[in-house]
Computed example of a mutant assay.
Amino acid sequence: MRGFDLFLCAVLLLSIVALLWPFFFYPLILRLLPDDPEQPEQGPRPTASLLFCAYNEAAAMPEKIANIEAIKQRHPQLEILAFDDGSSDDTAALIARPPDLVTLVRGPGRSGKAHGMKRLAAQATGEVLIFTDANVLLDADAIDNLLARYADPDVGGVLGSLHYVGEGESATASVGSLYWRIEERLKDEESRTGNVLGADGSIFSIRRALYPEFPDSVLDDLTVSMAVVFAGKRLVKAKDVIARERLVTGRGDEYRRKVRIAARAWHTHIHLRPQLRRMAAIDRFKYASRKIVRWFGGLFILTGAFAAAVLAFRISPVLAVGGAVLGLILIAIGLRAKGGLIAAVVDIFVAYAATLQGVIKAMRGRTVTIWNPAKSR
């Protein structure tokens, strides 16, 4: 085998390893790391404020309000605040309708979730700030179990566990559910060995004293949760703090959502970069493995596919053309199918493409500050 062929093989192998790193090699390494147990102490539980932002979530509000009412009955002292980001439907009216249940803060128009959460955090009085989403429902004992973890004074933030509903409704939903189950297990392992490297917005909390300042262009959940790590406190995950959310079933909705999240994630990375460099080596390794490598998964697919195509062409042009045609046929089938293995594989590639597009968009200076709820949820 000539030198150029060896180079192509190396590129293909490295692309495969990089693509599999966050989901296979990284979890294996985490399992080899020792436990870092929490050290709870006796004392009263902290007071808390529950915060969420909403935009045109009228369809989800009746169930959300019922969930909040059940939580409030169990925790009468829990402060609950909501930010309405200029909804054009009945979202704000539905939130404000039950008297003395939720403190509603109305935005001036479309200003985005990060802006809204900053407004709520500035107004909240609880010692612990609990963040969730407008379409997320919390289990009855979620608040109890979450606040119990703050018995350890070294714990500065606690993540919950997100359970998705509607897995079998489409290939997009099935892939999303599989991805999230892997993500939850990674967070469990990260928590067991020290710090989780970042939260999502479904359910997480921090001590109010650690809440940082940040621009509206970043992901507020990642920025706020990472402030715990930067402060030298522990960011842990609680398996018994359960939130439930319906999966996005439409491929277009999921694509746009991933582009938006990836763009904001890259802006967040740039904003946090000076502090990221000062983290402990193990936390830098975790962050790079679960965040940065994954953001460029689409690029690894492209380089691996290019190397494989050139190798195939050098072996046999007919083989290369036949493989390319077969690949295009399978992609076309997968894009048209509503379910099945081929559709699921295509959805995985689509997710990588959306993430890469979002990162490139952010690298070019584009920002995304507002969001729209997925119609297919």
Rank of each mutant, 00 (worst) to 15 (best):
1 M>N: 07
12 L>E: 13
21 W>P: 03
32 L>S: 13
33 L>Q: 12
35 D>Y: 02
40 P>F: 07
41 E>G: 04
41 E>S: 08
43 G>T: 02
44 P>F: 01
47 T>K: 05
64 K>S: 11
66 A>P: 05
78 L>T: 09
80 I>P: 08
81 L>Q: 06
84 D>A: 01
86 G>M: 03
95 I>G: 03
108 P>D: 15
111 S>T: 15
112 G>H: 02
116 G>M: 07
119 R>F: 01
121 A>Q: 02
128 V>E: 06
136 V>K: 05
143 I>Y: 03
150 Y>G: 09
152 D>Q: 09
153 P>Q: 04
159 L>V: 05
159 L>Q: 13
160 G>L: 04
177 S>M: 12
187 K>V: 00
194 G>N: 05
204 F>N: 03
205 S>F: 07
207 R>G: 00
209 A>L: 01
215 P>H: 09
216 D>V: 09
218 V>S: 04
220 D>H: 14
222 L>I: 13
226 M>R: 02
235 L>C: 10
236 V>K: 01
236 V>S: 05
238 A>Q: 12
250 G>K: 02
251 R>G: 00
255 Y>F: 15
256 R>K: 09
260 R>P: 02
268 T>R: 02
269 H>F: 14
277 R>N: 05
277 R>Y: 02
278 R>H: 12
280 A>Q: 11
283 D>Q: 04
284 R>S: 07
295 W>H: 04
296 F>V: 06
296 F>C: 00
298 G>D: 08
299 L>Y: 10
300 F>R: 04
305 A>F: 12
305 A>K: 04
310 V>K: 10
311 L>D: 05
312 A>E: 02
318 V>W: 13
318 V>D: 07
333 I>W: 13
339 G>T: 12
347 D>V: 00
356 L>V: 02
356 L>Y: 10
358 G>H: 07
359 V>I: 15
359 V>P: 11
364 R>Y: 07
367 T>S: 14
369 T>Q: 13
374 A>E: 06
